[in-house]
Simulated assay, not measured.
Amino acid sequence: MSEQEAFARVPYSQLNSRQQENFNFHKVAARMADYGFNCLRLTDDWQGADFIACHIDGQTFLKVQLKGRLCLDKKYIGKSIHVAFIRDDDCFVYPHDDLLALVRASGALDEQSERWRDHGQRHWPQPPAWGVAFLAKYRL
């Protein structure tokens, strides 16, 4: 492979799932660097996190789970997990339990929701209007 070919852009859709996760990590980590975070990739999910984001203040450490979209998962409840995902040119890093509290308070999610009740998950390929408003605070 020539050097010129090595620097040809590769469409995201041509990457396998592991390559997509690596791609997303680097995109999110680069964006978080603009906000003073150094992101350390973990070799396995530690306490639900794919990576740790350490702020330059020396006091702020975020456990971050990479996802492809806005989502909730019962396995992250109470673990101080932030969820990061990329949508178009935007990067979002939001506290999982804050989103859960909002959705529950609005009545948009309860044990009557089949996917939540039976699978412990809920995700939105396109954020609904309330999701867009929530995410506005967490756009990097």
Rank of each mutant, 00 (worst) to 15 (best):
9 R>A: 15
9 R>P: 15
13 S>H: 12
14 Q>W: 12
14 Q>E: 14
15 L>W: 11
15 L>D: 12
16 N>L: 01
17 S>E: 01
18 R>E: 09
23 F>G: 05
23 F>L: 02
24 N>Y: 10
24 N>M: 05
26 H>L: 06
28 V>T: 11
30 A>C: 10
32 M>S: 05
32 M>C: 06
33 A>E: 02
34 D>N: 10
35 Y>N: 12
35 Y>P: 09
36 G>V: 15
37 F>H: 01
37 F>C: 04
37 F>L: 08
41 R>E: 04
41 R>V: 11
43 T>K: 13
43 T>F: 07
44 D>C: 07
46 W>G: 11
46 W>D: 07
49 A>T: 12
49 A>C: 07
50 D>A: 06
51 F>K: 02
51 F>R: 02
52 I>S: 06
52 I>Q: 12
53 A>W: 05
57 D>R: 14
57 D>P: 10
57 D>C: 08
59 Q>N: 13
59 Q>I: 04
65 Q>W: 05
65 Q>L: 02
66 L>C: 00
68 G>A: 08
68 G>S: 06
68 G>M: 13
70 L>D: 00
71 C>G: 10
71 C>K: 12
71 C>L: 11
72 L>V: 02
72 L>P: 10
74 K>V: 10
74 K>C: 05
75 K>R: 12
75 K>L: 11
75 K>Q: 08
77 I>S: 12
77 I>K: 15
78 G>T: 03
79 K>E: 00
80 S>I: 07
81 I>Y: 07
84 A>N: 09
85 F>A: 00
86 I>F: 06
86 I>S: 00
87 R>N: 04
88 D>N: 13
90 D>K: 14
91 C>I: 08
92 F>E: 07
92 F>H: 01
93 V>K: 00
93 V>H: 04
94 Y>S: 09
95 P>I: 01
96 H>L: 09
97 D>P: 09
99 L>C: 04
99 L>F: 08
99 L>A: 01
104 R>N: 06
104 R>Y: 00
105 A>N: 06
106 S>Q: 13
107 G>S: 05
108 A>C: 09
109 L>Q: 00
111 E>R: 15
112 Q>V: 15
112 Q>E: 14
112 Q>M: 14
113 S>K: 14
113 S>Y: 15
113 S>H: 15
114 E>L: 15
114 E>R: 08
114 E>V: 15
115 R>E: 15
116 W>R: 05
